[in-house]
Write a protein that binds this DNA or RNA. Structure first.
Lengths: 234, 234
DNA sequence: ACCTGAACACCGTTCAAGT
DNA sequence: ACCTGAACACCGTTCAAGT
């Protein structure tokens, strides 16, 4: 005899209704979002693609996050969690800053696709604020002024994010093809010769980091004169 | 008697058909796009809003550009056109690099909303490639290696774009509210004390630029040792 | 409480119709 | 050649219906 199902079983997919155990958690959303960005970039992070990676539908996400806006904070929190700040408890300031800078760079070189959005979105998560505070406190303990501390930290970030993105992201900023197309032979030769991108990124960043530390160790950067540095011998 | 108009005059707006003089030009699109970004940011740059600023409809734009993709190149071309590179013909290298850096920073401080997209999109326009080549040629003439030239130029860009964006864009990266909310008193006090954002941005950038020039003037940045710079007296 | 389909307002882009 | 409305496939988000 005909079962009495009617339109209720018209489709083959799960019908609405609260599951006995939740399918989705905020942590799960964060992890899936970072995975998606690492693999395919922010443009691929749609509510639909994110939900399907979690075995659910886009509207379900709104029970756990308030909108796309929240995704940025969740992803930043995950990435910043990978940055080591423990060295400020044990090492002298200059050594700690170097180790911190290397860790910061390393983490973003591992997640270069996060940079385009994270580098231009206001910071709203506690973990990142906490990281800044840790660095600032260590600097203050060594007598650095607020201005000097902020200038150093921001310069470190710009250079770290810039090199990590420039040499790790899928699309390089300057392509050999573009340089050749517009008849810039010198630039083309420089760009082409950067063969091992990953190694060069770390080398370049390390040079710039050491330079920053050396200069800021002396005092406020305003006190460094061009004549002074020029007088240096190798 | 009823005029025989039917659906033809149903609306009051212009019907399709080629106008005797074109309403839109590629230059007009570029200028309108930059205006829109300066005023309201990239998110506000929709095909619809752009077309309406030109007195046309979104599909019309496709007769002049191939898609959103092209807008980035057009906007970059306009912005880079404002950067002065004439100093490389007249000034000694160090002075030319300083004047160039200041011009570069000034232009992006005037168009901070362009930074989030321009700083992470591959360069495809001839004017920007030409700017790089000009700087590279001047450096090569003074014996700078390709590696040294690229490292300097990229470091200059990261720092210039970073400071221009940090202190000029509508949303600051670190807000006093966030620092207070997450109990980071030192950071909060530093951020709060940055009262005159515009002036500080230029000051900070100038310090870092002078530092970069001083260090790179000596040689490849790899040759600068921490001990060497630390030995500097004020 | 939490998942869902349907619905809404908006995108970018294509295309045939019109001059 | 160039402008247009209509149409399409896709967004993010809301909400009532369902458990």
């Amino acid at each position: 005899m005909a079962e009495e199902l009617g339109p209720i079983r018209a489709g083959r997919r799960r019908r609405p209704g609260r599951p006995t155990i939740a399918k989705i958690t905020t942590e799960g959303i964060a992890l899936a979002a970072l995975e998606l960005i690492d693999e395919r970039g922010w443009a691929a992070l749609t509510m639909s693609s994110l939900a399907s990676r979690l075995g659910a539908r886009a509207p379900s996400l709104y029970h756990h996050i308030s909108g796309q806006h929240d995704l940025i904070d969740l992803v930043r929190d995950l990435v910043v969690a990978e940055i080591d700040v423990s060295m400020f408890k044990s090492l002298p300031l200059a050594d700690a800053l170097r180790a911190f800078g290397l860790s910061y760079h390393e983490v973003f070189a591992r997640h270069p696709n996060t940079i385009p959005v994270l580098s231009v979105s206001p910071i709203r998560d506690g973990r990142t604020i906490g990281m800044y505070e840790t660095v600032m406190v260590a600097m203050a303990r060594h007598g650095w002024s607020g201005e000097r501390s902020l200038e150093f930290l921001l310069a470190l970030e710009y250079v770290a994010l810039g090199t990590a993105f420039e040499w790790s992201a899928k699309d390089l900023m300057i392509s050999t093809e573009a340089a050749e197309k517009f008849d810039a032979p010198l630039l083309a030769s420089y760009v082409t010769s950067r063969t091992d991108q990953q190694v060069l990124a770390i080398t370049t960043f390390t040079h710039l980091l050491d330079m920053l530390i050396a200069v800021f160790e002396v005092g406020d950067v305003a006190s460094i004169t061009r004549a002074g540095v020029s007088a240096l011998t190798k």
